[in-house]
Nucleic acid binder design. Structure first.
Lengths: 339, 339
DNA sequence: CTGTTAGCGCTTTCAC
DNA sequence: GTGAAAGCGCTAACAG
């Protein structure tokens, strides 16, 4: 690689001082038009670019924000990012994304790297492993130092920081209620293990809705999917025991998998079994029939998250952390019977 | 936010010099155990973290690589990233991702930001808009300066830089051949507009396969999907004209959409129509029946890409840019008739 | 053992 | 008009 060109180099070339070059490139009126032009031309020709590390070190501001995500395979996270980018770009910030891949260790590393000077603020959604370990010590320092940080979706209430979440419980209540209203009597829940916060919240909504209608929760109708194992087989176990006439699944993959299992066993959707998923991604839209689903508005979530963060970064005074709860809505498509 | 703690602060606190503090924190044997301990304790208590900008400015090495992607909605890109992270982490590098969102302007900005000192090398897959504009001037400078850069998947042959691509043509030939072999007589192609390189290459494979078998290419069997419009409707147009008995689609979404249209019109898959897609993501796997598809091995692609990049970054001598072509394979599932 | 110094690339104030 | 100097936070060679 060719040696990087710096102000120093250019200065030597023209036998002037570094500050003269700096000013020339900034088109300062202090410098003679003639010199300015020559220097600018030379700089362009040699692809001069100010070293951003130096600049950022200088003005103690990076104008970039870091995002630490567990994964981007899930469509939901992709849409959140779109939202984040929308407002950050508008407000003059850049975004850098690092993935924890659901790993605790990588999450810690990513956060370390971001907070050691390279970003002005942080957006985080917690990894599964971290949730499982229940170890959040890597956030403590940041919170104590009032480092600008906003958590979204997978958050932890231990922390005094801005948070943006969706109302998982209500969303799930709505979904379950809908199944009850269209006449389902045996409603199954396909969810995550208990350490996944959103899974737990969605389960809570399901339970509440069932109980509100004076029914008992039937444990045999609840599947906790262990993602290290074959998802489909675990759902098949459900069908081996009982045949539900309604299914609420806490994410797209579970919902589509459930639909496939049901169909393979000869059930018609929605005539025999109605299915509702969570998160409105391509899987739900392109399923046949398209899935009725609780839509999460990832885009708005991203926007809101970024707004909170930039407000905090730019505010001089401290203010109390906010918790924004976004509501969901039920998008009714063809995987559920009509009333 | 609390003021950042620096070596200087700590030095003042203990009334020693900055370098003493630096050495203490590095546990240098030059410093008395006593002082070291006190300083280390103090640093820990106050959450001292070396400012990475300063460190990186100092050693002129960032140990991070930048990735510029058009989007992460496509599962393929997610898997590539996994591959990239695998080898970069192994070799002691960090990864930062920026999204161009298929926009030319954002691609230029991302690249600017990364190359102005914040990363040691760059991995890029070109945005659609850039391909359409056919304007690659933002790469010229980098190439001329021999900045370490590797392009993957969506590449441009104008540039002398390392590239990793898959063999789109062969993959498509194989897919089309397979359809021919299982007895399809009217094979449709669902592809992108011509300015998308990979779409064009896959089309070329399709055409070659058809012609190799002594058949004529029927223009009415080719759909060029304009993604700004409704995808499904465009596919329906195909069925309005002719009824294919085989479909080759250049990506997952087109393939699944085609399957849905076919099924809605009462055709059975694969009995009446066989369908093959490209890219092996969740959409293909969770489709019913699961899609036969050309698998792209995104993970290997990511690994290879990162390897090339790091090799280039770390090599002292210059060496000729390499072009690595990864082969695909056909994963036969249930959306195609068996022989 | 501890401190001084120079330097990474850049900006900015103040002198000439 | 141009340049010298200080400083951002850190490292490392060298001096004491």
């Amino acid at each position: 690689m060719k040696p990087k060109i710096t102000l120093k180099n250019i200065a030597k070339e023209f036998d002037v001082s570094i500050s003269t070059v700096s000013k020339s490139l900034k088109n300062s009126h202090e410098i003679s038009i003639d010199l300015k032009q020559k220097i600018q031309e030379y700089a362009k020709k040699h692809h001069y670019k100010p070293n951003s590390l130096a600049v950022r070190l200088q003005n103690q501001q990076t104008k970039t924000i870091g995002v630490v995500l567990p994964n981007i395979v899930h469509h939901f996270f992709s849409t959140v990012i779109q939202g984040i980018e929308e407002v950050t770009n508008q407000r003059g910030y850049n975004v850098m994304i690092c993935l924890s891949n659901e790993s605790y260790e990588k999450e810690v590393l990513n956060i370390e790297m971001f907070t050691s000077g390279s970003v002005d603020g942080l957006i985080v959604s917690i990894s599964k492993e971290t949730q499982k370990k229940n170890d959040y010590s890597h956030f403590n320092d940041l919170i104590e130092d009032d480092f600008p940080i906003v958590m979204f979706d997978r958050v932890n209430d231990k922390f005094e920081c801005d948070k943006v979440i969706i109302d998982d419980v209500s969303g799930s209540i709505n979904a379950t209620n809908h199944l009850i209203e269209i006449g389902c009597k045996k409603i199954a829940l396909i969810t995550t293990p208990k350490h996944i916060t959103v899974g737990t919240l969605r389960r809570r909504g399901y339970v509440k809705a069932i109980q509100n209608h004076g029914q008992e929760v039937d444990i045999d109708l609840i599947v906790e999917v262990d993602e290290r194992e074959n998802i489909k087989e675990q759902i098949e176990d459900l069908f081996d025991n009982e045949t539900p006439d309604g299914i609420f699944a806490v994410n797209e993959v579970y919902a589509v998998s459930a639909m496939n299992v049901a169909r393979e066993r000869g059930f018609k959707i929605p005539e025999d079994i109605s299915i509702i998923g969570f998160t409105d991604g391509p899987l739900s839209r392109l399923a046949l029939p398209p899935l009725t689903t609780v839509v999460q508005h990832g885009y708005s979530m991203g926007k809101k998250t970024a707004e909170l963060l930039i407000n905090r970064i730019e505010s001089k005074e401290e203010f109390k952390p906010q918790k924004v709860v976004l509501s969901t809505n039920l998008k009714i498509r063809k995987s559920t019977k009509s009333l």
